[in-house]
Write a protein that binds this DNA or RNA. Structure first.
Lengths: 229, 229
DNA sequence: CACCCGACAGCACTCAGTTCCCTCACAGGA
DNA sequence: TCCTGTGAGGGAACTGAGTGCTGTCGGGTG
């Protein structure tokens, strides 16, 4: 559709990263980039609204893809599982270009301005999760609270796994690491939005006996009980 | 100690907010602020490293207070509860000046640059939580993952409650709202770092029977079982 | 052919943030 | 009293990001 010929855009990204890597982000001016790319200064800002945007050239597309993915969800599906699927979409963007992702990771790690920019990007993903969950959990007790907390937890799990993969320079199994992290979140928050009318409650019997034990002990015990399956 | 006479600093904050409120953040230049405050331009940047910092004049102090609070924790306490205590500290900073907090909320809501700045501030709080939890959960299975996810969940719960209080223009009970939100998080994540050797496991008996039911149904049932107490 | 339109170059401008240097007040010490 | 150090503030000049505007070229369409 709109991906006809962004040749100039790619050239700008390449020139920018070449300079960022060899002399640092803050030591590189936009004029440096455009002279290396052989284009006019004004053209840079046609393709990237700010100098920071050239570091994250694919996030805008990924964000729209992800919101579209969530909007196209089957209304009967498990909402938490659906959000986890969306996270896997984001992960794929990183794993498609391991070297590029690792280079960018090293840059953002040491430039505070880029870290702030990355935060705002992650926040937009998280908001997309939360908006979707709010729609699915509407009407439930504490629906928006649950949506916000679960969205934050999913994003945090993804970031934790992603960062450990990036620290390994793109070696290691990113998919498996993220899967494990998501598993932890899914264990913590059951599937709070699924309709309960479909399955009769007789399918599940829970007996909990606590004699003065604090709540965290009960939860710990339930965890280990469930892990036996 | 260091809070001797920041008279000029306060004057700058007052002048800045007066202009921000009457003509907007982006329509106000730093020169406008310093001429209204009757000081030199250079003095502004002596007190605030950037124009955005004048909008959040107390966060830096609050952040150091909070990290000190966490560092001074009793090593035997429940780590999740301790982080919740730290969150209450942050909340207090907002509730101490309701009108100021509400004005700032309205500003940050409509200025993208300020939203990004606020994100980086919230992120630093979240990192403080996560660092503390990482220390407490060290050695446990998935310690850092749990720490990151729980920190994100606590921050999200706090933000959810805080925002709903701010939207009510400072009416409504902020403490109670946050308490409720934190209760949800504490229910979701037991107390994963507490030593289990102190209490004999006989205090808790858990029996879960599931006949083909999906995991989220089991968790739902456990939730309602525990809520009966 | 005239016309338009989209991509690009380039210039000039605003404003945030920094560097450097100046003034002034105030302290202490000979 | 004079000298001097010091620290807070004032202010000019500079860098660099981002914007607005104008001009230009090429390629379609009537």
């Amino acid at each position: 559709m709109s991906s006809t010929k962004p040749a100039m855009r790619d050239a700008l990204v390449a020139a920018a990263f070449q300079l960022f890597l060899e002399r640092g982000y803050e030591q590189t001016t936009v004029d440096d980039i455009v002279t290396l790319a052989g284009v006019g200064r004004r053209s840079f800002f046609r393709y990237f609204p700010s100098k920071e945007d050239v570091v994250f050239p694919d996030h805008e597309r990924c964000l729209t893809d992800m919101t579209a993915f969530l909007a196209a969800s089957d209304p009967g599906c498990d909402p938490l599982e659906r959000v986890c699927e969306a996270v896997r979409l984001v992960l794929r963007m990183y794993t498609e270009n391991p070297t590029f992702s690792v280079q960018r990771y090293r840059l953002t790690k040491q430039v505070p301005g880029l870290r702030a920019y990355e935060l705002s990007v992650v926040w937009r993903y998280e908001r997309a999760f939360a908006e979707y969950l709010r729609g699915r959990l509407k009407g439930l007790h504490d629906g928006t609270l649950r949506a916000d907390v679960i969205a934050a937890a999913v994003a945090a799990a993804h970031n934790n796994a992603l960062r450990s993969w990036l620290r390994s320079d793109g070696h290691g199994d990113a998919e498996q690491t993220v899967e494990h992290a998501l598993g932890y979140v899914q264990a913590a928050f059951g599937a709070p939005g699924a309709p309960s009318a479909d399955e009769p409650p007789e399918d599940v019997v829970v007996i909990v006996s606590r004699r003065g034990a604090p709540l965290w002990r009960v939860v710990q015990e339930i965890e280990s009980t469930l892990e036996r399956d």
